[in-house]
């Protein structure tokens, strides 16, 4: 799939934002006043910024408000509804924390649950797609949630949980890569099933339908070289997991180091998310060459 910056930024930032808001919702860290303002500001900035980035992916954003209507069937619609619900639910709790010195715990908990539910719906937008076998797997929501909670913990300064969560997510990510590499083949999609011509013999494209490109090819026929991908996997793992873990475990965890670990993690998430799209092979590519 085409690794469009808008969707990479969207999923990476909104995941971190909602992860952070979830931690804040359960009172970790237990902050109030200016400190609370700073963290909530960051949480909202990441979540809303991510959501805003997603709007750049829309070719006709005028109709974006209609995306709240189809929550019965559409994961994207559910995400929109839940994102707004989460942001609304978190707001009074944040207000209480910042301005009133505290807020009812159940209110924070509701906000936290809605925040994580939002991340889950985001993940399901991708997980639901049978057309992209690499995504169509339980590890996809696990990873999205892992990145959100782990990254959120990192930003929220929850060193110990962050360490455990990053380690777990890292393992899940490596598992997802290893398993994901075989999912397309395991799903049984081939040029032969795509065309129904397998009963005659081996199928290969002789001539593409049009000399030039088209929307499908631009959107779905992105491919990344194996060596290139492997390099990026290593870099992504190092940045998103290993370096933050080293910092968490090996440094006196202060604001500077925390900032560095978050920055490392964020860049790593961008790399990994780029790979998430770039390595995903859509079955429609079977109708085209290569």
């Amino acid at each position: 799939m085409h690794p469009a910056p808008s969707v990479i930024v969207f999923t990476a930032l909104s995941g971190l934002g909602f992860g952070l808001l979830a931690w804040l919702g359960i009172g970790r860290p237990d902050v109030a006043g200016a400190a609370a303002f700073g963290l909530y500001f960051l949480g909202y900035a990441l979540a809303v910024g991510g959501l805003t980035a997603s709007a750049f992916h829309l070719a006709n954003p005028r109709n974006a408000p209609k995306a709240f209507s189809q929550w019965r069937t559409s994961w994207l619609s559910r995400e929109a509804v839940l994102a707004v619900a989460a942001l609304l639910a978190v707001a009074p709790y944040a207000f209480g924390r910042i301005f009133l010195g505290g807020a009812p715990g159940w209110l924070g908990f509701v906000g936290a649950v809605l925040s994580l539910a939002t991340v889950f719906t985001t993940s399901m937008i991708y997980t639901q797609l049978k057309t992209i076998p690499r995504w169509h797997h339980p590890l996809t929501p696990v990873l999205f949630l892992g990145y959100a909670i782990g990254g959120g913990a990192l930003i929220a300064g929850q060193a110990t949980p962050a360490a455990f969560l990053l380690a777990a997510t890292g393992v899940a990510q490596i598992a997802a890569w290893v398993i994901g590499d075989g999912l397309f083949a395991r799903a049984g999609h081939t040029r032969e099933t795509a065309t129904g011509l397998g009963r005659i013999g081996k199928v290969r494209q002789l001539e593409s339908p049009h000399s030039g490109s088209n929307y499908l090819l631009k959107e779905m026929a992105y491919s990344v070289g194996r060596k290139h991908a492997e390099k990026l996997r290593v870099i992504g793992t190092a940045l998103a997991f290993l370096l933050p873990l080293l910092i968490l475990l090996g440094t006196p965890f202060g604001p500077l180091w925390a900032g560095l670990s978050v920055a490392c993690h964020l860049v790593g998430v961008f790399v990994v998310r780029w790979l998430f799209f770039a390595e995903a092979k859509h079955v429609v590519s079977l109708y085209y060459a290569g």
Binding site: L58, A59, N60, P61, N63, A64, E219, Y287
Partner: peptide, 27 residues
Amino acid sequence: EDDCMGCGLCAWACPYGARELDQLAGV
């Protein structure tokens, strides 16, 4: 098309490449 926001998800969901987002109209 009056309701389409051009997110392209339907095209992703289609195994057959049957949907194309018009680059000028955005639907």
